[in-house]
Write a protein that binds this DNA or RNA. Structure first.
Length: 303
DNA sequence: ATGGACACCTCTTACGCGCA
DNA sequence: TGCGCGTAAGAGGTGTCCAT
C-alpha cells in the first residue's frame, strides 16, 4: 500500500559482526520514527506507551516483544505520564535477513524460521511470551563475542518462532505469501482493495471479482488473510487515513471521505476502535513524534 | 469534531448438499 | 475428501440524527 508518512531512513555501517546490539533508555535521540534494511528484535523492558509499526498503533508495556522486517518503519513512544527518565527501556538486536536465508540454505533444520521472517514483513508482536527468558537470551548474546554471540541469538529466534501467539501488526504484506489458485484470486481482491480503498467495497463486488458466491468468498477471504473482508477494508482505510492525518492539514471530515467512508460518525467510530484514539488525537500524537525526530536529527547534526 | 442512540441492512457463519 | 454453493438466522456494520 502507499503511505504518505515521511520516514527517516537509518543506514547501518557495514560491520564484521552479523548482529548489532542496542540498549537505550527514555528519552533517547535514537527513539524516532525510522526504518532500515535490517530486521529488528525489540524487547521493551520498562515503561508503557504506544508502538508504531507501519500503519499499526498499539500499546506496549514491560515485556512486550516485537519483530520488524526489512524497511518496515517503526517507533515506540513512552506515555507522557512517565516524566522521569528511564535508564533502560529497550533491548534491540538488528540482523540481516539475507544472512538467515543463507543459513537456512546451508542448514535446513532452521527452515522453521522462514514463516516467522515472512510474517515479520508486516511486523509481529509476540503476545504472552516469557520476557525473562527472552531478556536472558539477549543478554547472553550481548555479553558474548564471536561465535558465542550467535548461539543465544539463534536460540532466541527459534524460541520466538515456536511461540504460539504471533500477532501481525501492519496491513503491509499481509497477503505476501499466498500461492494456490484460490489464494491468488483472494490476493487479487486484496490488491484491488489496497489500490482502490476510496471506492465502494462490497462483499458482492469482491465475490464477483474472485468468481465466487458472497458466502464462499467471505469464508475464503478469512481463511487466506485471517481477516473478515469488511474488517480488512476498514483497516486499509484507517491506515491510509493515519498517513493523511500525519502528512496533511486536511480536515478530518475531508480525510474521512477521501479514504472511502460514507459518513463521519462511522469513520470516527472505526478509527477509535482500531487506534484507541480519535483522529485529531492521532494527528497530535503523530506530529509530536515527528517533532521529536526533527529534534533528534538537529542534535546529531550539531554534534 | 466527537460520540451516543436507534433503525435498517449487509455480512458472517453454520448446515446440508452436490460435484469432481 | 475437498471444494463450492444455497439458505437462513443472528451478529455486527452503516447511516442518520442530534447533543455537546
Amino acid at each position: 500500500m502507499t503511505n504518505n508518512i515521511p520516514v527517516e531512513l537509518e543506514v547501518l555501517a557495514p560491520r564484521s559482526e552479523s548482529l548489532r546490539f542496542l540498549k537505550h533508555g527514555w528519552p533517547d535521540p535514537l527513539c524516532r520514527w525510522h526504518s532500515h534494511k535490517e530486521c529488528e528484535i525489540h524487547l521493551l523492558v520498562a515503561s508503557h506507551g504506544k508502538a508504531f509499526v507501519g500503519d499499526y498503533i498499539g500499546d506496549f508495556g514491560p515485556g512486550s516483544l516485537f519483530l520488524t522486517g526489512p524497511h518496515l518503519p517503526h517507533n515506540w513512544i513512552t506515555d507522557d505520564a512517565y516524566s522521569d527518565p528511564v535508564g533502560l527501556r529497550d533491548m534491540v538486536i538488528q540482523f540481516d535477513q539475507d544472512r538467515l536465508l543463507t543459513l537456512m540454505q546451508a542448514f535446513p533444520e532452521f527452515n522453521s524460521l522462514m514463516a516467522m521472517l515472512e510474517q515479520a514483513q508486516s511486523g509481529i508482536e509476540f503476545v504472552g511470551i516469557d520476557p525473562e527468558h527472552v531478556q536472558a537470551l539477549i543478554e547472553a548474546s550481548f555479553d558474548a563475542s564471536g561465535t558465542a554471540q550467535v548461539m543465544p541469538f539463534l536460540e532466541l529466534l527459534l524460541h520466538m518462532s515456536r511461540h504460539a501467539e504471533k500477532r501481525s501488526l501492519s496491513v503491509q504484506k499481509l497477503y505476501h505469501n499466498e500461492r494456490s489458485a484460490k489464494q491468488l484470486r483472494i490476493t487479487e481482491v486484496v490488491d484491488h482493495v489496497v489500490k482502490n480503498y476510496a471506492e465502494d467495497m462490497s462483499v458482492q463486488m469482491a465475490a464477483d471479482m474472485a468468481g465466487m458466491s458472497p458466502a464462499t468468498f467471505s469464508r475464503s477471504f478469512q481463511t487466506v488473510t485471517g481477516n473478515r473482508f469488511v474488517e480488512f477494508v476498514n483497516r486499509v482505510r484507517i491506515g491510509q487515513a493515519c498517513g493523511m492525518l500525519y502528512a496533511t492539514d486536511d480536515q478530518v471530515t475531508t480525510i474521512c471521505f477521501q479514504v472511502g467512508f460514507q459518513n463521519l460518525a462511522n469513520f470516527n467510530r472505526h478509527f477509535l476502535a482500531k487506534k484507541g484514539m480519535t483522529p485529531s488525537a492521532y494527528r497530535e500524537t503523530a506530529r509530536r513524534e515527528l517533532t521529536r525526530a526533527d529534534l533528534a536529527m538537529a542534535v546529531e547534526t550539531a554534534q
